[in-house]
Computed example of a mutant assay.
Amino acid sequence: MDQRISFITLAVADVSRSRRFYVDGLGWQEELFVPDEVLMIRAGGHLVFSLWDERGFEGEVGPIRRGDGLVPITLAHNVATEAEVDEILAHARRVGADPVGAAVKRDWGGYTGYFGDPDGYRWEIAVNPGPIGQIVLPD
């Protein structure tokens, strides 16, 4: 098996609401949108970010764990500068992200902040000064 990820799929309560947030709000470009079923967005050269209606997700994958607390996953968007982190967090706040936390310097040397999408998935916006941070930035 090749060492790569082809799709990241998240179950969402309302695909149209997710589309309004990601496409209309954040300005991302959809590759495929089927109302009440799925939204797919190219997120890299060979990576698709898929937002799938939770009923369809459960029908194929199995029951979703529900309850208090956060979903135990974060998605990260790394950038080159602290100013970019702040700009993206401000933009996320303007388009309805909730919550949006202020970015802070982390003990490991990075600068990061988080925002929540309409289903509570947390996006980390980060500058990672180490070698691993460099491999995830576009050329």
Rank of each mutant, 00 (worst) to 15 (best):
M1Y: 05
D2K: 08
R4E: 03
T9A: 09
L10G: 01
A11Y: 01
A13C: 02
A13W: 00
A13Q: 07
D14M: 03
V15L: 07
S16M: 05
R20T: 12
Y22N: 10
Y22Q: 07
V23M: 03
V23L: 04
D24R: 06
G25V: 11
G25D: 06
G27Q: 10
G27V: 09
G27S: 08
Q29A: 05
E30V: 13
L32A: 13
E37K: 11
M40I: 15
L47A: 04
L47K: 07
V48R: 06
F49P: 02
S50N: 12
E54A: 01
R55F: 01
R55H: 07
G56M: 10
E58D: 03
G62A: 08
G62K: 00
P63Q: 07
I64N: 00
I64W: 00
R66M: 01
R66Q: 11
G67K: 01
G67C: 03
L70W: 09
V71N: 11
H77C: 01
N78T: 00
V79G: 07
L89R: 10
L89I: 05
H91I: 07
A92T: 10
R94E: 15
D98Q: 12
V100M: 13
G101C: 06
G101K: 12
K105D: 15
W108C: 11
G109K: 04
F115K: 09
F115D: 07
G116W: 11
D117R: 04
D119T: 00
D119N: 10
W123L: 02
W123A: 04
E124Q: 14
A126F: 02
A126W: 05
V127A: 03
P129F: 05
G130A: 02
G130M: 00
P131E: 15
P131N: 05
I132F: 12
G133Y: 08
Q134M: 11
I135N: 04
I135R: 12
I135M: 14
D139Y: 05
